[in-house]
Nucleic acid binder design. Structure first.
Lengths: 112, 112
DNA sequence: AACTTAGATCAACAATGGTTGATGCATCAA
DNA sequence: TTGATGCATCAACCATTGTTGATCTAAGTT
């Protein structure tokens, strides 16, 4: 089997980073949160009210996304504001771009 | 809460499609397969030998990815060749791009 | 100091997802 | 037609994730 794709031709994040980010994005509730954060920074109570979520449930998912490096928090007094980590999105886009490069090559016949 | 992100400003796939693709990418084994397919079309036996996987296990993951629209199959005689669906990768890149647009906006103070 | 509110964390439970070995169904070769 | 090979599918089991309600801490308020 020929080599697949070089490691980071134009700036995609590494395999494990990508996996964690994909996992963080692989949940409907988290995607809603991510979409909300796509409009800019939001505080937890805003997200919780806006999406109608139990606080504990939201907090759990925020943690998952934070630990994956998808979002980051800014504490201010009694509130915590979350935002998307721009590097994360770029990293994933890059990773996907890296991947797409060679993907159109047809297979050599398998076992001729 | 202000509106988040418009539905498809420049060609990202829709929310549910994105979720399925992210889920399909959120597994280490599947990522290895995807990376292999990044080098072009491969037949199942090639993948199975190349990655040292039990046939049943590989077949399971190929199905997950196929059903998510991430890869597609081409049958030829006794073999089945898989490749990445280019639209899938572009769709995700677009979705991520859509998202990144407004993400830098700072939050209005939450409950002033 | 006593009270309230934002948010994190925890423990118990529920649900989803992945692995393994067996079986089935085509296709090709002899 | 018989036998072998490539791949999909199934059922049973195991592992990882998500949910819920309770509890905890740190700011703010009065």
């Amino acid at each position: 089997m020929p080599a697949a794709v070089a490691d980071h031709p134009y700036g995609g994040c590494d395999l494990d980073q990508a996996r964690q980010l994909f996992k963080a994005l692989a949940d409907p509730l988290r995607l809603e949160v991510v979409q909300a954060l796509g409009g800019g920074e939001r505080c937890v109570c805003e997200l919780s009210h806006g999406l109608g979520l139990a606080q504990s449930r939201l907090s759990f998912h925020l943690k998952v996304m934070r630990e994956a490096g998808l979002i980051e928090a800014r504490e201010q007094g009694r509130w915590v504001y979350y935002r998307l980590r721009p590097g994360a999105l770029e990293g994933l886009q890059g990773w996907l771009g890296d991947l797409a490069c060679g993907a159109a090559t047809p297979a050599a016949p398998c076992c001729p």
